[in-house]
Amino acid sequence: MLTRKGKYGLKALVHLSRLPGGQMAFVGDIAAANRIPKKFLDAILGELRNAGFVQSRKGKDGGYRLAKPATEIKIGHVVRVLDGPLAPISCASRSRYERCEDCDEETCHVRHMMLDVRQAIAEVLDNRSLAQMRDAANDDSALELQVRA
């Protein structure tokens, strides 16, 4: 499940991806525009900076911007950085696998279903860029306006 941290991090990245190339955004502006608590967003942006998704600069002309093009940022990578493994249970995780004490992994129907779930989630998130996510939201808004008209 995507946590608030993951959701807010993705919202902040989409916000930054909409800026003209090289332009910086203040954390307060990102927080206000996306209804994210500023202090929480500060911590999230720090993690995103450490992971190489954003760059920051202090001062009057400072703020945050994407560290690389939105087309190169995969949503699955962002989610893993902020929220950890994609698997709904630890015995289905690739990166943080833990064996369950209460079942036989070879015959456990729950584990086999959760492996499929994990794979389906990874298939979507690992093949979707930040640019695609941003543009899909824009396409959905345009479609909604057409339907209302």
Rank of each mutant, 00 (worst) to 15 (best):
D83V: 05
E144V: 13
R128L: 10
G28P: 13
Y8N: 05
E106L: 13
G63I: 01
A131D: 12
D42G: 11
D135N: 12
L16T: 12
Y64P: 09
S93P: 07
R96C: 10
V54N: 02
A25I: 02
A137L: 10
G28T: 14
Q23Y: 14
R118S: 15
L2N: 04
I73R: 01
E98D: 04
K68T: 04
A122R: 03
S17C: 06
K5A: 06
Q55N: 09
C100S: 14
L45Q: 11
H77A: 06
I36Q: 12
A67T: 03
F53L: 02
L130F: 06
V124S: 06
C91V: 06
A131M: 07
C91Q: 05
R18G: 15
V79M: 07
G76P: 05
I75G: 00
G46S: 14
A67I: 03
I75F: 01
G22W: 07
G28K: 15
S90R: 14
K58G: 11
L2M: 08
K7P: 01
L115Y: 04
N34V: 14
P85K: 00
E106Q: 14
G62A: 04
A12K: 09
V27K: 15
S93Y: 01
M113L: 14
A149G: 15
G46R: 09
R49L: 09
A131S: 13
R65A: 05
K38C: 11
L16H: 04
A31V: 12
L125V: 07
N138C: 05
Q132R: 10
M113V: 12
E105W: 03
M24N: 12
H112I: 15
G6T: 04
S93H: 02
P69Y: 09
A131Y: 11
T3R: 01
A12T: 09
Q119V: 09
G76Q: 05
D139M: 05
E72S: 13
R111E: 06
R65Y: 05
L2T: 09
R148S: 10
R57I: 10
L82C: 03
V124R: 05
D42K: 02
R35D: 13
G28I: 14
A31R: 15
A70H: 03
R65P: 00
A43E: 07
N127V: 06
D140P: 00
L143F: 09
K7D: 15
N50T: 06
I121F: 11
M1D: 09
A70V: 08
D83T: 03
